[in-house]
Design a protein around this nucleic acid. Sequence first.
DNA 1: TCATTTGTCTGACTTAAGTCAGGTAAATTG
DNA 2: CAATTTACCTGACTTAAGTCAGACAAATGA
Lengths: 291, 291
Amino acid sequence: MTHDPISRFRRFARSVTTEVGALDESFLGRGRSLGAARVLNAIGHGHADVADLRTYLNLDSGLLSRLLRQLEGEDLITLSPSPTDARARIAALTLAGKAEFTAYEEISNTRAANLLDRHPHPEALLAAMDLIASALGQDRTVIEERDPRDPQSLFCLNEYYAELGRRLRTGFDVNLSCDPQATDMIPPRGAFLVALSDGMPIGCVGVKGSGAPIAEIKRLWIAPSARGLGMAKRLMTAAETRAKALGIQTLRLDTNSALPEAIRLYQTTGWTEIDRFNDDPYPDFFFEKTL
Amino acid sequence: MTHDPISRFRRFARSVTTEVGALDESFLGRGRSLGAARVLNAIGHGHADVADLRTYLNLDSGLLSRLLRQLEGEDLITLSPSPTDARARIAALTLAGKAEFTAYEEISNTRAANLLDRHPHPEALLAAMDLIASALGQDRTVIEERDPRDPQSLFCLNEYYAELGRRLRTGFDVNLSCDPQATDMIPPRGAFLVALSDGMPIGCVGVKGSGAPIAEIKRLWIAPSARGLGMAKRLMTAAETRAKALGIQTLRLDTNSALPEAIRLYQTTGWTEIDRFNDDPYPDFFFEKTL
DNA sequence: TCATTTGTCTGACTTAAGTCAGGTAAATTG
DNA sequence: CAATTTACCTGACTTAAGTCAGACAAATGA
């Protein structure tokens, strides 16, 4: 058998291992060990405090300490005590460090751009990568509270509107809908949650409150590449927990029969169908849940 | 920007690196260094002679020698001189070695099966993996001459027939077509070439000869995941070179207007359209090329 | 046949990576 | 406030990985 699922998976793993190995090789071209390069890159990507670096890179405290001093010796980073805890130290790139970091980024970006450039269907290739990254990263997906006007929140919301436009027979115009004001989805009135897989937004949900003990769930969206992995359930659970913490006792939501997966989710997670509670033209299904 | 092509590519690379790292970790669970495990696996996958192992694993001769002796000391492999060259040595797994090899395979296969099992659309995930593996592996794709009755050849031929069935408005029944006898595509009359990416067949082409200095190109097929990467051109060039070596002076082929990519390829690579030269019901385009 | 090349092995290295047991100073807790 | 915990550092290790210069025997070519 040469074409069974497992052979195909393993061929994928081999090809990707080769690519990863080649990237590591080109990293070594900058005359620094892979360990030091990883630390430099992690700092450049915003992992500032030493404790964070240690868990992110999964390094022994002694080993990381030495790597940090090596980078400090090369004048690529500075280490200063944390203002809130004089024991902890915070790493920052110097100008030279930023230049080195950019050089490493260039290596990665060039490899990525080359591969995408010479492919006949870059968008298909990227969609495939999204799918695989979501499947592999499902255990590492985190849910974070964000301002709904954040770039990552806006990305989710735009995708959500675009998808509604495609799926509702009538199309979707956000201006005709009961569009929640951003402040209604920010504490203390409400909250907006984004699911991030490796930093990439792959889903969102909003709790739209008014200060009263009743609030609405809005804008539940999951990226196509992440569907079927249980993200909607995780997001809804997180939203309910957050709503409870904000003092909300009852949640309501409206949805559309063109979104059967969503309706099925609500039906199986303790929501009860209720009568129409607004005059928004789009929804035709209404649910309620007591927390 | 959080959703540009390069970010998406790099998110993919990160998630896959984590997965590869986790696999290496579980390999270490068998109490052998990664180097020794890699050698054992390579032998199990048919890399028997030491020289082949050295190039395949890209190892220093001294290092490989030591790893081999370590495995020999564990009674996992035997090393015997090659019958054709008494300097060269050939590695083979002992019974215990086969058991260890299987254990490593199990680790990989279980990880693969787990991931596929818990995904809602395993076939979509696999198609995405095929696409990426073909894109990453395009430089490592090799063209090999095979017997057209080989399992890998048959896989290509079946896919080819299935695809014709989908694309021809009339469907496609191999029995109605001028199906070449396998012996017509085996030296000295002809040849059958298969493109292999990491051992996986992703394309084929046949040269159907009769002993005369005129022969036909048949069964040109490229896997969907590998289209647009120039494989068809590579296969055709290889087929022409092989035909020439078999003493063939003129090549002909028939094709169908439902396959415009193929027709475009022939038109741009030195083929001239000619009159119908057979009464096969399927083709409606005919080409010829003098080598 | 004899010089050269080839395939593998050995011993003596270097280096990166990682482990582990203290040590110091700051923060936290009862 | 004293005891404990936490965050990081240091020194002394081990191990895997990899490099390099020969050594040897078999194969090859003039």
